[in-house]
């Protein structure tokens, strides 16, 4: 590290300085000063940035949860521009295929989409991941990100009907899966009234047993739009017993219910 300090202080932007940063990064990949200096040297030497991506990839293979590494990668991609897009999205896919909930990879993917585009195939990708594992909340979150932000889908209202169908199907298939319930609620983010009044949803979700219980929990999250108070009370009573881990919570919720008219 003394070599590094000396070369950094002298601001020597040379091939040997680049090699030294490589060594220092291997020893301590979290050292942001080294990464920063490496960027200065890369710029000064006009290095081939595709090679730099390979270098980053080799480091990532041993530790893909290093924040500096992902920041550095973003810096390189910014310089390569939209030419790097397809390759980058593909690379993130391969990282996610090994660790499908890698938060860094998802964060980087959202950045690439916003900075360079590539939205066209993203909904299909989410679909594919959810077919592999319908319990994967990272994929549900990405789906929400796409339907609310993709310039090709026309916004949340435009896709709502088909997304509601999709999430209701997922709920029916696995009523215990928290993700589609949250997603369904999210589709009506600022419009809970419509969610509560949608007959299609209530006819499917307000069936007895498991589905019935979960539906009311998901639907009823606002103090200002009460369901039928007797029904809600009944639900809280059920939950207090079947979801004993949260018994105190359901008792509290029940006591917060508005008095039935």
């Amino acid at each position: 590290m003394d070599y590094f300090r000396a070369i950094y202080k002298a601001d020597e932007r040379s091939p040997r300085a680049l090699r030294l940063t490589r060594r220092a990064i291997h020893l301590n990949p979290g050292n942001y000063t080294v990464w920063h200096f490496r960027r200065l040297v890369l710029e000064a030497l006009n290095t081939d940035l595709d090679e730099e991506l390979d270098f980053i990839q080799r480091i990532a293979n041993s530790n893909s949860k290093n924040y500096q590494l992902w920041h550095h990668r973003r810096w390189v991609i910014e310089r390569l521009g939209s030419n790097a897009r397809a390759k980058e999205l593909h690379l993130i896919k391969s990282i996610l295929s090994l660790d499908v909930k890698n938060y860094h990879a998802w964060s980087h993917r959202q950045w690439v989409l916003q900075a360079l585009g590539g939205w066209e195939d993203e909904l299909d990708y989410c679909q594919q991941l959810l077919e592999q594992d319908i319990f994967n909340n990272s994929a549900w979150n990405q789906r929400y990100f796409v339907v609310t932000r993709s310039p090709f889908l026309g916004g949340l209202i435009a896709v709502r009907a088909s997304e509601v169908r999709y999430s209701v199907e997922a709920i029916v298939a696995n009523p215990n899966n928290e993700c589609p319930w949250r997603y369904l609620r999210g589709l009506y983010k600022d419009d809970i009234e419509s969610l509560v009044n949608d007959r299609e949803i209530s006819s499917v979700c307000l069936k007895p047993s498991q589905e019935f219980r979960d539906a009311v929990v998901a639907l009823w999250t606002s103090d200002t739009h009460p369901l039928d108070a007797d029904l809600a009370t009944a639900i809280c009573d059920i939950l207090e017993h079947v979801d004993s881990l949260r018994a105190s919570y359901w008792i509290w919720r029940k006591n917060k219910l508005p008095i039935a008219a």
């Binding site: 909340n137 929400y144 990100f145 932000r149 949250r182 997603y183 999210g186 999250t221």
Partner: peptide, 12 residues
């Protein structure tokens, strides 16, 4: 959309 917070806007 689910009530929790992601580390950046849009994240899980």
């Amino acid at each position: 959309y689910d009530g929790g917070f992601g580390l950046m806007p849009g994240l899980e």
